[in-house]
Design a protein around this nucleic acid. Sequence first.
DNA 1: AGCGTAATGTAATGTTATTACACCACCTTC
DNA 2: GAAGGTGGTGTAATAACATTACATTACGCT
Lengths: 149, 149
Amino acid sequence: MARIMDAPLDTAESWLAARGEKLTELRREVLSLLLANHGPIKAYDLLAALQKQRPGASPPTVYRTLDFLVAAGIVHRIDSLQSFVVCPTFHAPHQGVLLVCERCHGVEELDSPLWMETMRRELAGSGFAMNQHELEIKGLCRNCQVVTV
Amino acid sequence: MARIMDAPLDTAESWLAARGEKLTELRREVLSLLLANHGPIKAYDLLAALQKQRPGASPPTVYRTLDFLVAAGIVHRIDSLQSFVVCPTFHAPHQGVLLVCERCHGVEELDSPLWMETMRRELAGSGFAMNQHELEIKGLCRNCQVVTV
DNA sequence: AGCGTAATGTAATGTTATTACACCACCTTC
DNA sequence: GAAGGTGGTGTAATAACATTACATTACGCT
Ligand SMILES: [Zn+2]
Ligand SMILES: [Zn+2]
Ligand SMILES: [Zn+2]
Ligand SMILES: [Zn+2]
């Protein structure tokens, strides 16, 4: 059961262990649901899914777990969608750019440290210290550019 | 009274007229409050301010007006702060980058079309059509870099 | 066993945003 | 100048998103 999800979960477990933290049963369930969703999910949708297997789950249950996973770098919060998505490369140091489609609400993560470094330098010139971990760019994904509707 | 605010309001009026839209009394009051605030303001804080001079104001009053002003390009919504800020250069075509300080929640708008064009091109390479009007970058402003607290 | 900290449960509340429908002002057309 | 359409606003209710505060449990350590 859920065999296909084991690898990322195990990776998360080691990743957390290296930080002195634990992937508890609750966290495992939440992360599993996040992975199963493919793409960003809203906190309350996640809560609804979680409640199917853990009836007592409440908003704090899911928000606490999300906060933890976000702090650990395993999950990213997408401000423009008020949603959460698993980072595809959380186990490796990276400077991801989150490409958020304004039409289908899909999110793609592009790792381009070189590009980020350029931006960082440009902005430093105007006295602003960019946070290199969570850059969110809105636009249209490849699919959504075609359809105008 | 409010003499200093007249110029931007008048500019907004002409700008809207050119689009076939009107700066009604309500919209004028809301925009005036936004201008008076300097920096981003939350919808419900704006509502509270508005209610002082317009007791019947309710959430739809302010959200409708904000939606209108955002659509007209006069106001920007800051996703990461769930706040709204007047665009300092709405009357001129521009491609602003919103530099959002994660500590003091200040927002600075940097107009750098050249830089934006570079980004647009880079991203187009990966099939993503960036929205050039609302790029939001998180980080620390000049003041907040000093203090670590 | 006794203690301290991390994790979770639970109830209530706070904050942000939308829906639905009523009403009015204004403009156009007949 | 009545009828009808549109845009703008009023009002009530509710939905959606997030946090606080406190109780309880799990678990490693002495
Ligand atoms: Zn990532
Ligand atoms: Zn899309
Ligand atoms: Zn602007
Ligand atoms: Zn600052």
